[in-house]
Write a protein that binds this DNA or RNA. Structure first.
Length: 559
RNA sequence: UGGGGAUUGGUGAAAUGGUAUCACGCUUGACUCUGAAUCAAGUAUUGGAGGUUCGAAUCCUCCAUCCCCAGCCA
């Protein structure tokens, strides 16, 4: 299945690849160059992964190259920590930018020269309108704007002013450099957009060398041109910027002619994918950090145990279009399960333990039971699991008054303990409050290994852990971060936070898991996929549930 | 009568005038030492109305709905 998906991904076709194919056929380019251009002001999330897979994927499909470029034009919001995490995450996702690591800030000097060029051509001017005034002069969506009183300043005066802006003579906000385009344009981005603003701030890379910084519009397209990017792929909200992107490219002596194409950003059910909201979740402590396993960040997914290949498969399956859409989280979970099902070794872990005593099993005896690491893949071998008189099974695997469809333990019923024996429940012991605290069972020694010589069948097979040999483990179960598919659709998104997004269980796992390697996926049979968390201590593992197994009994129960 | 973009099953996509295809999800059944996996079946006349055509999801006209834009953010 995942092989098929991988093939689909490789032969992916979408409107962007169609454009690239046509451009190549028409001989418009010698080679294809794309770029992933994050602003280092937050951690990458699965929405970015869509863009990363697209940009690197297109480059790979057409034997071109994809750059990693930091759009670091706003020192007020950007940090080195983000520059580092972004590189780590892109690498983890499986992509390599080789030598092609760039920063918009590397182009600051060139960008400054081009701004001077624009001024010289009478196509840019320094404006002293305040931010509020500028908003008023800009007009509204339905009414044209009014020219700034400074719009017709002489080239000389503009040159002098702009030079002094660079020199640091002015305080933040006192003036800006604007392009002189069309104050009456229906496209507000063309109503003399700001190109440079004064920011007396320390930049993570250029330090205090600059007092003015180009904004996105003046840095992005020109950086594309400088790097020789042929296809500049961005999300839909930038479509309105394309005329400005083109205007700048046309009016500047750039050496290349990149083209911008827009695609729809990813929306996912039961989560949020906006930097502002993710930042808020982290800063207000609703999650434990950017890499909290409940977060849709790449670092969160990684910590939870999601394989990078699952993210890539997902990106391939959702496609690339121009229509707004919200993808079902279930599809992402499917991609994760699909990969892990094939690769994760099987183990036994009892999440919510219920003590079982096998009354007719000799006291003090322990025997080793052979268990396959992957029933469908014998090449993965097997391990020995200790079995003894006292065990733990899952609380949910016992019901005193079982409905017809319940196949598991109930008084008088025989079930199989996986790879071990058939056992029959004789009695449920309760505490003073009436809660079942222990099961008394008997086993059939003839069924060793899990099969009955007389051919009798059981309806259920349960996982188990020997009480004496089991390793206590903290198991963290994650559920959707939000209770609704569309958090914040009617009100504050924080009100939709799922109070049960994290459940911690005191569990027992089989001895083979005592020193599980952090991040390495395993399947706890009948439960889901897990991996050890960095919080693990030697002999005291902590597990994250990556994703639960599909559970048709749970669905049945809801009816 | 501001500008831009979009509309195919519950969800995401494909079909580029020639019998609406795929994936996920859901439902049912088979199988099963994981109620998993696997296997089988079911699950839309393409936003609406006209028109062009032998033939329309694709072309034309009108209508409707949704998304984005008025940062010295990206």
């Amino acid at each position: 299945m995942s092989e098929t998906e991988a093939e689909n991904t490789e032969t992916a076709s979408d409107f962007i690849r169609d454009v690239v194919r046509e451009d190549l056929a028409a001989g418009r380019h010698d080679g294809i160059v794309t770029r992933f251009p994050p602003e280092p002001n937050g951690y990458l999330h699965i929405g970015h992964a869509k863009s990363i897979c697209l940009n690197f994927g297109v480059a790979a499909d057409f034997e071109g190259r994809c750059h990693l470029r930091f759009d670091d034009t706003n020192p007020v919001k950007e940090e080195l920590e983000y520059i580092e995490s972004i590189q780590e995450d892109v690498r983890w996702l499986g992509f390599d930018w080789g030598e092609n690591l760039y920063y918009a800030s590397d182009n600051f000097e060139q960008l400054y020269e081009w701004a001077v060029h624009l001024i010289g051509a009478g196509k840019a001017y320094v404006d002293h309108l305040s931010a509020e005034e500028m908003r008023e002069y800009r007009g509204t969506l339905t009414e044209p704007g009014t020219p700034s009183p400074h719009r017709e300043r002489s080239v000389e005066e503009n040159l002098d002013l702009f030079q002094r802006m660079r020199a640091g003579e002015f305080a933040d906000g006192t003036c800006v450099l604007r392009a002189k385009i069309d104050m009456a344009s229906g496209n507000i981005n063309l109503r003399d957009p700001v190109l440079y603003r004064i920011l007396n701030a320390h930049h993570p890379r250029t330090g205090d060398a600059w007092h003015i910084y180009p904004n996105y519009d003046f840095a992005h397209g020109q950086s594309d041109a400088i790097e020789g990017v042929t296809h500049s792929l961005c999300t839909l909200e930038f479509a309105d910027h394309r005329p400005l992107y083109d205007w700048l490219i046309e009016n500047l002596p750039v050496n290349a002619r990149p083209r911008q194409y827009e695609f729809a950003r990813l929306n996912l059910t039961y989560t949020v994918l906006s930097k502002r909201r993710l930042m808020q979740l982290v800063q207000d402590g609703h999650v434990k950090g950017w890499d909290d396993p409940r977060m849709p960040t790449l670092s969160g997914l990684r910590r939870r145990g999601v394989p990078a290949a699952a993210v890539r498969d997902f990106a391939g399956l959702i496609g690339v279009t121009k229509s707004d859409s919200t993808v079902d989280m279930a599809l992402f979970d499917h991609c994760t399960r699909d990969l892990l099902n094939a690769s994760a070794p099987r183990r036994m872990g009892v999440l919510r333990p219920l003590k079982v005593v096998i009354e007719n099993y000799p006291e003090g005896e322990t025997e080793m039971i052979e268990a396959a690491n992957h029933p469908q893949n014998p090449d993965m071998g097997s391990r020995q699991v200790p079995f003894s008189r006292e065990l733990y099974v899952e609380r949910d695997d016992f019901m005193e008054d079982a409905p017809r469809k319940f196949f598991r333990l109930t008084p008088g019923r025989e079930v199989r303990l996986r790879y071990a024996y058939f056992v029959t429940c004789q009695e449920a012991i309760k505490d003073a409050s009436g809660e079942v605290v222990e099961l008394r069972c008997t086993y059939d020694p003839e069924t060793k290994g899990g099969n009955s010589p007389d051919g009798r069948k059981v309806k259920a097979t349960l996982h188990w852990v020997s009480a004496e040999h089991g390793v206590p483990a903290e198991v963290r179960l994650y559920d959707h971060l939000f209770m609704r598919e569309d958090p914040g659709a009617d009100g504050d998104f924080l009100d939709d936070l799922n109070p049960d997004s994290l459940t911690v269980e005191a569990s027992y796992v089989e001895p083979a898991l005592a020193d599980a390697e952090v991040g390495t996926p395993v399947q706890f049979e009948r439960q889901g996929y897990f991996c050890a968390d960095p919080d693990s201590k030697p002999g005291a593992p902590v597990f994250n549930r990556t994703v639960a197994l599909r559970d048709s009994w749970a669905k049945q129960k809801k009816k």
